[in-house]
């Protein structure tokens, strides 16, 4: 099953912010985490993650820093900021409204 690109785009911000609430992370790891969580059903074009991360940083929802990993490779780590947590709370409320509404409509059909 392939998700519609509009749905993938709309879910990218809450997904990234939610992953960052688990701890600081970097682009490649964020994509791997999304793949794991969705069991490969959410397929992002890897490069498209970075404009979203920069957009979040621009709006001070996340903060970034370059750091050297144990392997010696420099990675850009992102951490969530208070504005990001606030935005995530808002997004969560909205997504819950959508999913609970859809669930109410769909449940009887599956019952």
């Amino acid at each position: 099953m392939k998700l519609e690109k509009e749905l993938v785009a709309a879910s990218s911000v809450p997904l990234i912010l939610s992953i960052l609430t688990e701890g600081d992370s970097y682009g490649y790891a964020i994509i791997q985490r999304v793949k794991d969580l969705s069991r490969g059903k959410i397929q992002w074009t890897d490069g498209m993650l970075y404009p979203v991360l920069h957009w979040l940083e621009d709006r001070r929802m996340v903060r970034s820093r370059w750091e050297k990993a144990d392997s010696g490779r420099k990675r850009k780590y992102y951490s969530i900021e208070p504005a990001g947590r606030q935005a995530l709370r808002e997004q969560k409320k909205q997504w819950l409204v959508v999913t609970s509404t859809l669930n109410q409509i769909w449940k009887p059909q599956h019952a």
């Binding site: 074009t45 890897d46 490069g47 498209m48 970075y50 404009p51 920069h54 957009w55 621009d58």
Partner: peptide
């Protein structure tokens, strides 16, 4: 291939 088309990525960056 997984990284995607650079022109498209660049156009997303330009929107910022």
């Amino acid at each position: 291939a997984e990284l995607g088309n650079l022109t498209r990525i660049a156009s997303e960056f330009r929107k910022l």
